[in-house]
Computed example of a mutant assay.
Amino acid sequence: MKIAFIGLGNMGGGMAANLVKAGHTVNAFDLSGDARAAAADAGCEAHDTVESACESAEAVVTMLPNGEIVRSVYGDQVIAATPKGAIFLDCSTIDVTTAKEVEAISVGAGFEMVDAPVSGGIAAANGGTLTFMVGGTDSAFERAKPILEGMGKAVIHAGEAGAGQTAKICNNMLLAIHMIGTAEAMKMAQKLGLDPQKFYEISSQSSGYNWSLNAYTPLPGVGVESPADNDYQGGFATGLMLKDLRLAMEAADKADAAVPLGARAASLYEDFAGAGNGGLDFSAIIKTY
């Protein structure tokens, strides 16, 4: 299949490369010349404009920074340049309202579309082991699924348009809460004189078990290898976690949903990022304890 891939940043570059490995022809575009060159090295056909990347595409995949850019790229470029009948897959993490609106505009212009945000981070994007949470019609999901399977280990149909974004922001709000709770417990145990490794061995096999502790331990030298063992470099940046928490708070407000722990997590990450830590992995929140 000929696929246009728009947005070749830390996540998109690896995702586009995996589509090439899966046997697709990938027309790649990014505003960064370095990103386009890296995509070409990975087997993509680099393009200088969105329009040229899309003009013969059977599918368009986007991985963009925010909802405003997604709306602009589709409304001003992708829809006009892509042959009718193509399938659109937006893998960006954006607000639910914009996701629904862009999908409605695309459908009205003769395209099927899904919102398909991801979980897994840069390593999973490079390794082709992402999880995709997909919103859209049954028909659009069935068309999108084989493409997404070339980039991930799990492709789950969450529901109608916007459901993928809903799943993503709720999941990451939960992740933020788990990470903060894990950090608090680990530092409290340490200050009470308990060896952090012993705490990990106990809690990771008892009722304190959770992903942030077992698979992404936030304290260096304890538990599994994680960004904590690399001075909190790589992984999932605090700035990106804060972006997702802001989206979650916006959605909670619109839905009149009570999220006191989510709101507190957002406040803590707001302060942590504001102190100059936005580029550190989100598990570095343990430094505040």
Rank of each mutant, 00 (worst) to 15 (best):
E51M: 09
S106Q: 06
Q165R: 09
L242T: 03
F199Q: 02
D253N: 13
E270T: 15
L219C: 08
P196R: 09
G274M: 11
E112D: 15
S203C: 13
C44A: 14
E250W: 05
Y289F: 15
I79Y: 00
G150A: 11
G279H: 12
A22K: 05
N126C: 08
L31N: 09
A161G: 07
V222Q: 01
A255I: 05
E250Y: 09
Y232G: 04
C54A: 11
D256I: 09
I177Y: 00
A104C: 11
I180C: 04
I202S: 12
G9L: 07
I6Y: 01
Q190E: 15
E149L: 11
D34V: 13
E201M: 06
E250N: 14
D253H: 12
G23R: 05
I286H: 05
K100L: 07
T62P: 01
V61P: 00
S206I: 08
L64S: 02
L148K: 03
I202A: 15
G159R: 04
I122Q: 09
T238D: 04
G67A: 05
P83W: 10
F272A: 03
G181I: 05
G121S: 07
L64D: 00
S267G: 13
K100G: 13
K2D: 07
G110F: 07
P218G: 10
D76N: 15
I286Q: 06
Q190G: 06
M188C: 12
M151Q: 11
A251D: 06
G12I: 03
T166W: 03
A185C: 12
A273M: 14
N126S: 12
A237R: 05
A167G: 07
E45A: 15
G13R: 01
S283N: 09
A40S: 14
D48M: 11
K153H: 10
A257V: 13
M249G: 06
G13Y: 00
E160C: 06
K100D: 08
I156Y: 07
E112P: 02
I177M: 10
N230M: 13
G181F: 04
R71E: 15
S72Q: 14
G67T: 02
F141V: 03
E45M: 12
L268T: 08
L31E: 07
N172M: 10
L268N: 10
D229R: 06
F236Y: 14
D115R: 01
S283E: 03
F5G: 01
G110H: 08
Q77M: 11
S106E: 04
A46D: 06
D48S: 14
E149I: 09
